[in-house]
């Protein structure tokens, strides 16, 4: 990884600069910042997913936390990685990880949800309606 190039007007990424020199802002700087934001956002979403898995009342609700924020968190982390690494071979690998994440997370959640329902490991008191029970 190459450090962001300093423009002719001075360094942007220097910690001492108080005002941002917009003329010296390069594409790599922007990519670095966007990458950093994506990494932090992805980490926060993954944390929220972990909290959800811990706090939600039953298995079925927990699987919601394990699919949505978790998948978006991983995708944001991957996006952040791509923006920081900026190489083509890494991009291919990251794209594959993303595709498999999107394809497998719902399947895993469904298998666990189905097993939880069939073995009765859910709280009927928390369900407003259960149309599967009438089947």
């Amino acid at each position: 990884m190459t450090p962001p190039a300093a423009g002719p007007g001075g360094t942007v990424s220097g910690g001492t600069a108080t005002a941002v020199d917009w003329a010296a802002l390069t594409v790599t700087d922007v990519a670095d910042w966007l990458g950093a934001v994506s990494l932090v956002a992805g980490a926060l979403l993954s944390l929220a997913a972990a909290v959800g898995v811990l706090r939600f009342p039953d298995t079925l609700s927990r699987m919601h936390a394990a699919t949505k924020p978790q998948v978006l968190g991983v995708l944001l982390l991957l996006l952040g990685l791509v923006l920081r690494l900026r190489t083509l071979s890494d991009l291919g690998m990251v794209a594959l990880v993303g595709v498999f994440q999107l394809a497998t997370a719902p399947v895993a959640a469904q298998m666990i949800g189905r097993a939880a329902y069939r073995t009765g490991r859910f709280d009927p008191g928390l369900l407003d309606a259960d149309e599967l029970a009438d089947r």
């Binding site: 929220a48 997913a49 079925l60 936390a65 949505k68 924020p69 407003d128």
Partner: peptide, 21 residues
Amino acid sequence: SLHVARIAVQPGYVPRSAIVA
């Protein structure tokens, strides 16, 4: 994702749910 993340960290909140066909 934001919705689930929000109710996950909301203190003292227990979400109700349902199963529909």
